[in-house]
Amino acid sequence: MKPPKFDYHAPRSVDEALGLLQRYGGDAKVLAGGQSLMPLLNFRLSRPAALVDLNRIPSLAYITEQDGQVRLGAMTRQRTIEFSPVVKERLPLLREATKLVGHLPIRTRGTIGGSLAHADPSAEYPAVLTALEGEVVARGPKGERVIKAKNLFRTYLTTSLEPDEILVEVRMPAMPAGAGFALEEFARRHGDFAIIGIAAMVVRDGPRCRTARLTTAGAGPVPLRLRAAEEILERDGLTDAAIEAAARRASELVSPDADIHASADYRRHLTGVLTKRALKRALGAARG
């Protein structure tokens, strides 16, 4: 299992990287943390003409706070996110999700931009970006454009990024103070991609629920926002009955696929169970 031959480039700037992508006209692959792409290369399931390695572009790794948003450079390592005080304070759901990404040695190299651009629907980051209504910045030959989460993920391992574009920044609105949150996952083995994961955030206003966010991982070709379930909570508050109803609704909203690890029915059922568990835990952590 050795990778096939490819040209290798380690540009020092995004512009240089974009030039390389153009040069190869869609036959080059962008190498970020490499924790998904390198296995594909080793299996020879991916045979690009060239790799454009972003790891020598230091300006792509940062975490800043601006206009109520947390902005993360695409090459920010998952490990950096895990231990970032800003993320802990402003995006605690992202922090919780990060701890569930593979294992620590994977997070040493894995990046947020790489994970989102890889668009594995079972992965944590796409679900969190979707739940928090985040967006990404893509830069291409024609300049930058902002892509909202709901427009980013097209299907399995496919995004709306163009082949000559590079995802350069991830933006997530800071979570409201006191928001309750949880990422509930069920996997057969620790550290694996979830059979089903549910990212939840609730913002309380006394007995009422001002905002509810529920997103799936693993329940279909893209992370799915469970809006109809959220609406039940926003309408009926965070009572046990409303949570049960939202969980039931959640399982009706998904049409997951079957694989060797789980049937579609089981995934649908788990969607309800984990929605309930995520909401209960989120509620327990919510203030306000």
Partner: peptide
């Protein structure tokens, strides 16, 4: 005994 198979039986 995968959880998926077991759940089906329980169900």
């Amino acid at each position: 005994m995968t959880p998926s198979k077991l759940w089906k039986a329980i169900e």
